Amino acid sequence: MKGFSRTNSLITAALFLAVSVTWGTTWMVMKIALTSFTPVLATGLRFLLASPVLIGLARAGGHPLLFPVGKRRFQCCLALFYFSLPFSLMIYAEETVSSGIASLLFAVMPVAVLSVSWLLTRQGVSRLQLIGTLIVMMALGTIIIRESGTTEIQSWKGVAAILLAVVCHAIMYVLCKKHCGGISVLTSNALPCLGAAFILLIFGLIRTPVDLTHVDTRAIAAVIYLGVVAGILGIMAYFLLQKRVSPFRASMVYFIFPLIALSLDDMLNGQAISPLSALMVAPFLAGIFLVLRPSPVSASR
């Protein structure tokens, strides 16, 4: 039994590390993809690589590709508002925002989900969650103001794009809890991912034809990484992690991946945030912790 428990713990730790590293490195890789592709094309190619594997895994696992009758319109909404729009906005933002700051902006997702849940479902918000939300907003606001006009944040358009992507994901996440009950994660991702690939590639190629003679091999490798590692392994690792631990423990990745992204940006690109911004990261993560922390009422149920 001890050996089984130890193996189980090691598998959980490996999944947690895999998700953290995947989410933490994705932001820099998106930056590299932009050297040869537009945000729309890079995202479309990313999904084109990921979708066949996700479809194959769904079929192999006996999961249906289509949502139940009556929920298929929502499946189309996932292709547009969970995949196409937010992921394009995220990589578009990195044209003017550093990968480290982009990851930090995206880490406000728990606050966005909490806010959307309260607005759409009137889910209760504890006092500690409200305090955590205020701390996150103040810390993030300080970072944005301090880094604006530097190489970290060259334009507010990038900040707005990331935050809009966060809002889109938060809304779709809350709606998924309502409409996707009992639907597997593979069914929820496979066809919407493929649909997003076609939408983005058609739109992207019409707007900006690709000149293959000027495509950098590093950018191609970056798109492959985004499709295979982030698009497949990242999704599956997080799904398996959620099955093994509580939602609160799984959400601990939100404390790790921004630190990885910020460290990589500093070490590889020489882009370090200011001392004041670095100081604000601590209360920012503390606020995220308070938002994610289960309330005594929900924990006792």
Rank of each mutant, 00 (worst) to 15 (best):
V125H: 14
V245H: 01
K157P: 07
R249Y: 12
A219G: 07
P294V: 11
G227S: 02
R244Q: 00
L259D: 11
L34N: 06
L290Q: 15
V291S: 08
I260C: 08
S246E: 09
L65K: 01
T43E: 06
L57D: 03
S148C: 02
C193F: 03
C77L: 14
T208L: 07
L128E: 15
I145P: 05
D216C: 06
T25I: 04
Y254R: 04
L276C: 06
R6D: 14
L34D: 01
S155A: 06
L268D: 01
R73E: 08
R59A: 13
F47E: 06
P275L: 07
F255I: 12
T7F: 15
S277C: 02
F74D: 01
P283A: 03
L240S: 09
A230S: 08
V40Q: 10
L212T: 11
G132R: 14
L78A: 02
V229L: 05
V253L: 10
K177R: 09
Q129G: 10
L279K: 15
D265H: 11
C77P: 00
T25R: 02
S9F: 13
M90F: 09
R122G: 04
L194W: 10
P52Y: 11
T121S: 07
P64T: 07
A93Q: 08
V113I: 11
L264E: 14
I55C: 04
A33N: 05
L175T: 07
L134Q: 02
L140G: 02
I135A: 09
L49P: 04
V253T: 09
S84W: 03
R6A: 13
P68R: 08
V245Q: 02
V29P: 00
Q154R: 12
G70I: 10
S98N: 05
V291M: 08
L17G: 08
L105A: 00
S251A: 15
E94W: 09
E94A: 08
T7C: 14
S117E: 09
A272T: 15
M267N: 05
F74I: 04
Q154E: 11
P258V: 13
A33Q: 10
